[in-house]
Design a protein around this nucleic acid. Structure first.
Length: 328
DNA sequence: ATTAACCTGAGC
DNA sequence: GCTCAGGTTAAT
């Protein structure tokens, strides 16, 4: 569910609370949340959160040795206590990261992103029902709680090592280290990454016959784009989703990537896209980009550019909505 | 390069 | 009942 714009909104909210904090404990509450078992959750305790970083839809905290040297006795990282580790979150289709007493301020939003007030108690209990992991952290003000809530359990939390980026540039937004969590190796630079090699992506797209929408969704090619923003980028660039990659010019691919970057920046401005209570930020608030969508979820409605009724089809197992007239 | 599977819940 | 949903991955 959460794509780059939603994960970035969550990252900005988390950074406010987590930067500089000390991890007191990390606990998995469902067998699927730590299914990879990269490093024991216990090794997170006693470390300090130095960064809150993101590449595409992957979000992580850089954990460093506590300056006070008060590392826990059971802490035994592979490269010694000085090696930074990554506390990696992937939200899957329905993951939420909620800080402390932020219990949410709404139950649902309407089809166009308008806010629908509901009982706060109902929203809170619904979330606790799907609580999958808890992180206790502390700062000068005392102890706090970060809850990982995930209805469908496609998301996960992994404590893992950091490995160097192939190009020697920083691993993503919010990190100075030229490193990536090992679990996220293979994830390409995202559509808003200043170090994304656009010409290289264009070459890769143009060397494959796979339809362009499927390539846009390929996180190993360019990351952060999911079903919402793929439809939006194609609509805004005026490109038909079924165009084979090898039918496109380099200029068209670059126009498409620029359209993706623009729509993602616009979505971040308003906190991302919420259709219901499944996507909320770290404070429990929805985003308001649903009302600015051109294509996603607008099947049968008029194209915002030419008025033609939007079509829908299934491509690569995902539904695609597009304008048959002005996307060519 | 497609398809099925992993899950829970909402809506028809 | 059935279909669909913001994602990824393992298996055809």
């Amino acid at each position: 569910m959460p794509e780059l714009a939603e994960v970035e909104t969550i990252r900005l909210g988390l950074a406010q609370h987590l930067l500089g904090a000390r991890v007191e404990g990390l606990e998995g509450l469902h067998p699927r949340v730590n299914r990879h078992r990269d490093l024991p959750y216990e090794w997170a305790a006693g470390r300090r959160i130095a960064e809150v970083a993101r590449r595409g839809k992957f979000l992580w905290c850089t954990l460093v040795a506590d300056a006070a040297g008060a590392a826990g006795a059971h802490q035994a990282p592979p490269g010694g206590p000085a090696e930074p580790l990554a506390l990696l979150f992937h939200l899957g289709m329905s993951g939420q990261l909620l800080v402390d007493s932020e219990i949410g301020q709404f139950d649902s939003v309407g089809a166009h992103g308008e806010r629908v007030e509901g009982g706060v108690g109902a929203a809170a209990s619904d979330r606790d029902k799907h609580l999958r992991a808890r992180l206790v952290f502390s700062d000068a003000a005392g102890e706090h709680l970060l809850r990982f809530v995930d209805q469908r359990t496609f998301g996960y939390v992994s404590l893992c090592r950091l490995a160097p980026t192939p190009d020697g540039q920083p691993g993503g937004q919010g990190t100075e280290l030229a490193a990536l969590p090992t679990r996220a190796a293979g994830i390409a630079r995202d559509a808003l990454d200043p170090y994304l090699d656009v010409a290289q992506v264009a070459d890769a797209v143009r060397s494959s016959r796979t339809i362009i929408k499927s390539q846009l969704l390929d996180q190993g090619k360019v990351s952060g784009i999911g079903n919402i923003y793929a439809d939006e980028a194609l609509a805004r660039a005026g490109i038909h989703p079924t165009r084979p990659g090898n039918s496109m010019s380099a200029a068209e691919v670059e126009r498409l990537l620029e359209a993706a970057a623009q729509v993602l920046r616009a979505a971040i401005e308003v906190g991302g896209t919420s259709f219901d209570a499944l996507y909320v930020d770290a404070a429990g608030n929805p985003g308001y980009f649903a009302r600015e969508l051109w294509a996603y979820g607008r099947y049968g409605q008029p194209c915002r550019r030419c008025g033609t009724s939007l079509e829908r089809s299934v491509l690569g197992g995902r539904s695609a909505t597009f304008c048959p007239a002005c996307q060519v």
